[in-house]
Amino acid sequence: MKIFTKKFNRRLAMMMTAVTVAMASTTSLSLPVKAATASMSENSIITFKNDAPTSERIQQLIDTAMHFYWNGGDLKQAEKDIFKGITLKGKYDVVENAFKQATVLDPYNIDLKMSLASTQIVQKKIPEALRTYEQILHLQPDHFNANLLYGMYSKLNGNELAYKQSINNLRKIDADQTNSFVQKFKETEEILGLKMNTEVPKGLPSKDHAIVILGYALAEDGTMQETLVERLKQGLKLAQQYPDSKIIVTGGVPKNGVTEADNMTKWLVEQGIAKERILPENKATDTVESALFSTEIIEEQGIKDVTVVTSASHIRRSVALFKEADRFYSKMNGKEAKRNFTNMVYMDYETVEEAHEVPKSELLVVYRDLFRTAGLWQYPGIQR
């Protein structure tokens, strides 16, 4: 279940009741919302009067943004009824423009501006995001997260001086927290140069070792796509060579009633892996949550060494996030983060040389998700 679903359903019921009893023929705002319950059709339209309380209009814009973030929707309908005069090229255009309108309705709300900047980052609109962060910092110069994000995204955009200035500002705000992030950045830079193993690594521990196979979106009918099957094949090779290792399969987005973890477990058992070796993690909706939720299992099982299995194009981000999740869980439990992380990949590049190049677009996603794993929510209070 998505993070906002329960609250959204309660608001939805109240909104539908209001629409039913409302008889005034004033100009209205019509918002297409995909059915949140089985009783509603996919093309349901919720209509609100423009003279509704501002708080309700802001909340509806937030709900619309998050609905499109997760599910998409009818862009032409959104152009016609919500964002008149704006051509929408994709669902994130709806998310961005919904937060833009929300910041107009409540220009004092910093969280809305942070959410707008996050959506611009998701779309790789770094200059636009930096301008949004600058607005926040003009209003709140000591806002730690805005300073941090502005600094790193400035660096990724080629402005090293702005990054250094941000770090200096951050040390004045909270020196310990700043030094912690600087260390995270240093370790992440090291991970960006990791060697990818396409064959089973030698010399892995025979005790307290786990193989983590990362999921990949299922087809609409619930079947596994090629990328996920190839990841499983690599994980199977590891599992056969290291028979005492636990296997964590992670992925919780359901399609046609099954999750990635469900299908992965079934596939491995069909290949002869004992079911008791397999630890399904079936709540994660993305790589950030896979790292956090799998690490909880790793901690619970007393695992000391982890081999992450995924696609080559996904491995740098995955290892960076697992190391960050390990730092968090170790700190929470009063321990030093000492787990060793190795990898095995399905090579989804044309050449090994290409695989080891780190484009700017990948850097952006690595650091964006590193921040999320470290506790900086992408949409504050709404969605990690």
Rank of each mutant, 00 (worst) to 15 (best):
M1R: 04
F4A: 07
K6A: 15
R11Q: 13
L12R: 09
M14E: 15
M14W: 09
A18N: 11
A18F: 08
A18G: 15
T20I: 13
T26K: 13
T27A: 15
V33P: 00
K34W: 07
K34L: 13
A35K: 10
A36V: 10
S39H: 14
S44T: 14
I45K: 09
T47Y: 01
K49Q: 12
L61T: 00
Y69I: 09
N71D: 14
G73Q: 10
K76T: 06
D81C: 11
I82A: 01
F83C: 11
I86G: 00
K91I: 04
D93Q: 03
V94M: 05
V94F: 02
E96K: 05
F99Q: 01
K100T: 07
D106N: 12
S115D: 07
I121R: 02
K124N: 12
E128T: 03
A129S: 02
L130D: 01
I136A: 05
L137P: 00
H138R: 10
A146S: 08
K155H: 08
N168A: 14
R171E: 08
R171P: 01
K172D: 14
D174W: 05
A175I: 13
D176G: 02
D176E: 12
Q177S: 08
N179Y: 03
Q183G: 03
E187H: 12
G193R: 05
K195E: 13
M196N: 05
S206I: 14
K207C: 13
H209E: 13
I211G: 08
V212D: 06
A217L: 15
A219D: 15
D221C: 11
T223C: 09
L228G: 01
E230V: 03
K233Q: 13
Q234I: 06
G235R: 12
G235L: 14
L236R: 04
K246W: 15
T250G: 02
T250L: 05
P254H: 04
T259H: 04
T259W: 05
T259D: 03
E260I: 03
E260D: 04
M264R: 06
K266G: 07
G272F: 02
G272L: 03
I273T: 06
I278F: 06
E281K: 00
N282K: 11
V288M: 14
T295Y: 06
I298A: 04
K304D: 15
S318Q: 04
V319Q: 02
A320V: 01
F322S: 03
A325P: 07
F328L: 15
Y329N: 05
Y329K: 02
K335F: 07
E336C: 15
E336T: 15
N340A: 14
F341P: 05
T342C: 11
V352T: 11
E353Y: 02
H356T: 08
L363N: 06
R368E: 10
F371G: 00
T373R: 03
Y379M: 12
